[in-house]
Amino acid sequence: MKKVKSERVKRTEEIKLPQMLDFYPLEDEKNTRISLFFENLKEHRLTTTKCNSCGKLLWPPRIICPDCMSDELEWIDLGSEGELYAFTEMRLGAPLGFAEDVPFCIGIVKISGLSISARIDNAKYEELKIGAKVQLKIVELEDGRVFYRFVPSK
């Protein structure tokens, strides 16, 4: 019987976070037709689309209206101040890419008739209150992408 060989082969132990495990969307016009949302964020404006045909305010922003199938949408400013409808704090069970932020607060923010989820920065769970005012904040990732968060209003 021939001798069976054994050989140790090399594999990378550490792999950079793969793009599809990055929670943030691809934001430029090559990757999405709502890139204006992110362009507006860079100018510190939180916006969304509104249907010109039926008047429905849509969140998240999109390219057609699900209520009437119109693609005549316009961009609307949502303002920069909202109100906390609910909130909690991530203490255990954070996903990859979030661990270094733990603990961090998450809320549902009422703003211009919408209820959107968002990170609440500069806050401790014990110090937040339902109904408290929160102010828009923009965060910028290392690669230049941007996203919205809120902080408690002073």
Binding site: F23, P60, T88, M90
Partner: peptide, 23 residues
Amino acid sequence: LDREWDGVNGLSAPPFFAMTAQR
């Protein structure tokens, strides 16, 4: 939950149901 609009904020099941419980 929608990864780009809710998941991105850390909204896995426990935080979502925590806010449900709070309300």
